[in-house]
């Protein structure tokens, strides 16, 4: 723990003398935008330990949670662009600016690569009367605002998907925000709300124990964890905003260093350990190289900038 706290100070001292020589020649800091223990943290720690081999230097994770990740992103993009401080890039890099938390987005970053995607799933309790998404939507049409959806927080990616569902199908729900998916799902399990939208990996355990039923996965292709659950695209509603995980550095990291980092993460991505973790956590392993990830992240950022303020206003 003390090492973790002292490390930044030591690195600062060490940073004074490095610049030339082969990269990497010292420890790399990976800033994680969430608290220890969650999906972002696990993805970062596992990826970091797998990338240490090819890079030949330790990759040390440091958690800086707060404001949906805005604090960590703003901190990381202001570090020297030498490739020794990088960050975990979740979907929130494309939303925090639209939410007004901090003026930071993918255009301030040197994106390295993307490694996974998590589609959202709509779940109800197994004792609920609705067997399909259309039955649920019919019920919602008969009683606008009567069905209550818990979500992981106003402006969070899963809340955004609930708003998208309303917008694209023309129904109205009542939203009950919680501080994260876990309490939102507890509220559903306890019978206090009617349905919830959360990441596939977050609901899979409750589905397997027979407590929750997934009605739809908001994606194009079926999820490997719920092969029997239809997707929104199959049902004729072409929408769905997944969560994702990637890595970035401050804007201006030299191209060869980004390439070196991307190469190491690609090797980590190809490992058995990574595939196993994805399977356990309900993530889809998807690799996007730096250019593809950049295009994707900028597209997402534009998409959220266009949709989020309007959808949130509708609700507020």
């Amino acid at each position: 723990m003390f090492a973790r706290a002292l490390l930044p100070a030591l690195l600062l001292l060490a940073g004074c003398s490095t610049a030339d020589g082969p990269y990497p020649s010292k420890e790399i800091r990976l800033i994680v935008q969430a608290a220890p223990g969650g999906t972002s943290d696990t993805v970062s720690r596992v990826m970091a330990s797998l990338a240490e081999g090819p890079l030949g230097v330790p990759v040390v994770c440091e958690n800086k949670p707060g404001a949906s990740g805005a604090l960590a992103f703003a901190f990381t993009v202001r570090r020297p662009p030498d490739g020794y401080t990088i960050g975990h890039a979740p979907v929130e890099i494309a939303t925090v600016r639209s939410l007004g938390f901090a003026d930071v987005g993918p255009d301030d970053m040197a994106l390295i690569c993307m490694v996974s995607k998590t589609p959202p799933a709509l779940v109800v309790r197994t004792d609920a009367p609705w067997q399909s998404l259309d039955e649920l939507l019919d019920a919602a049409r008969k009683d606008p605002g009567g069905l209550i959806f818990s979500n992981s927080g106003t402006g969070s990616i899963w809340h955004f998907n609930t708003l998208l569902l309303e917008q694209r199908t023309g129904v109205r729900f009542t939203h009950l925000p919680y501080g994260g998916s876990s309490p939102a799902l507890v509220s559903l399990l306890g019978g206090h709300v009617d349905a919830a939208i959360a990441g596939v990996g977050e609901v899979v355990a409750h589905v397997q124990s027979g407590k929750l039923r997934p009605l739809a996965v908001f994606d194009e292709a079926r999820s490997s964890v719920f092969p029997d659950t239809p997707t929104t695209h199959e049902l004729g509603y072409e929408f769905g905003a997944p969560a994702w995980s990637g890595f970035f550095g401050p804007k201006g990291v030299p191209d060869d260093r980004v390439a070196k980092l991307a190469g190491a993460f690609k090797q980590a991505f190809d490992s058995e350990e990574w595939k196993e973790l994805c399977l356990e956590r309900g993530m889809t392993p998807v690799y996007l190289d730096r250019d593809a990830f950049r295009t994707f992240a900028l597209e997402q950022s534009d998409f959220f900038a266009g949709e989020l303020p309007q959808l949130l206003r509708m609700e507020r």
Binding site: G66, A70, G100, A102
Partner: peptide, 20 residues
Amino acid sequence: GLDPMTAYPRFNFGIADFLD
């Protein structure tokens, strides 16, 4: 910090560190 229902910033004086 952020309003728990609307996620609107309250009493943080524009400082991002106090959003939570």
